[in-house]
């Protein structure tokens, strides 16, 4: 049965908004599972019960307006309801105007064939100055703090994906796309590229290290002053 229990296969969630995404996933899973089981049950009952049998004729039924109205209305209500329920999650994650403020870290992430370049503005908080810190494939952030990311790409489209954060965003050449997250558990997580970006796409991989507050300070003190 574990093959049928989709939600059990989700990796551990470590972001503040991830639970909202998972809840929607689980809700849709149950709606679709019930519809699927019901439809299949009816189908199987019908094909057994109404199989060809000597002496029994099919009934001439052309349709039913009532039924058409019922299932059209029911489906419409369910899908509109789902869409409405999804609005807040989408707004929270993707609308820059809704991003929480006071970030504990601000990083520019730049996808290029086939690496992620991470740039920290350094102690002065400005990009493009001498104290910028540039790292290849290493993203360090503090736990339980909002992180703001400016995402861009050098050459082709890449996609920044951290499965455990439930976060994915394409990186476009020539544009800066803002995104945010707040990790809730220290650890190291992979940042695969999720958009085909060339012959080296498979294996384009960065690492997100979520530090405890003290560790993050220590890391900053060590690296930002170099």
């Amino acid at each position: 049965m574990k093959w049928l229990n989709f939600p059990a296969w989700l990796p551990e969630n470590v972001s503040t908004f991830g639970q909202g995404v998972d809840n929607l996933f689980i809700l849709i899973y149950w709606i679709t599972a019930i519809v699927f089981v019901a439809v299949m049950a009816v189908l199987i009952v019908f094909i057994i019960k109404y199989r060809f049998q000597e002496g029994r004729k099919a009934e001439y039924i052309e349709g039913s307006t009532t039924l058409e109205i019922v299932w059209t209305a029911a489906t419409t209500v369910i899908v509109f309801g789902l869409a409405m329920l999804s609005l807040p999650q989408w707004n929270d994650i993707k609308f820059p105007s809704k991003f929480p403020g006071n970030p504990g870290a601000v990083v520019q992430v730049n996808g290029k064939q086939f690496n992620w370049d991470m740039t920290y503005p350094g102690p002065d908080g400005e990009w493009g100055t001498d104290d910028d810190l540039q790292l290849e494939n290493q993203l360090h952030v503090p736990v339980n703090e909002v992180v703001h990311i400016r995402l861009t790409a050098d050459d082709v489209i890449h996609s920044f994906f951290v499965p455990q954060l439930r976060l994915k965003q394409d990186a476009l050449p020539g544009r800066f796309i803002n995104m945010w997250f707040e990790a809730t558990k220290p650890g190291t997580y992979e940042i695969p590229c999720a958009e085909l970006c060339g012959f080296g796409h498979s294996g384009m991989l960065g690492y997100l290290t979520v530090h405890t507050a003290e560790d993050y300070e220590a890391w900053k003190n060590e690296r930002w002053t170099e």
Binding site: R51, I61, W71, T75, F80
Partner: peptide, 27 residues
């Protein structure tokens, strides 16, 4: 997202009509 979800409606109509065709049939 809203327009896409709406596609479920005609798709459901078709599916239920196929099921309805099997009802009291001689398969």
């Amino acid at each position: 997202m809203t327009t896409t979800m709406l596609i479920a409606v005609p798709s459901a109509i078709k599916t239920f009509n196929w099921l309805g065709t099997l009802h009291r049939a001689s398969i």
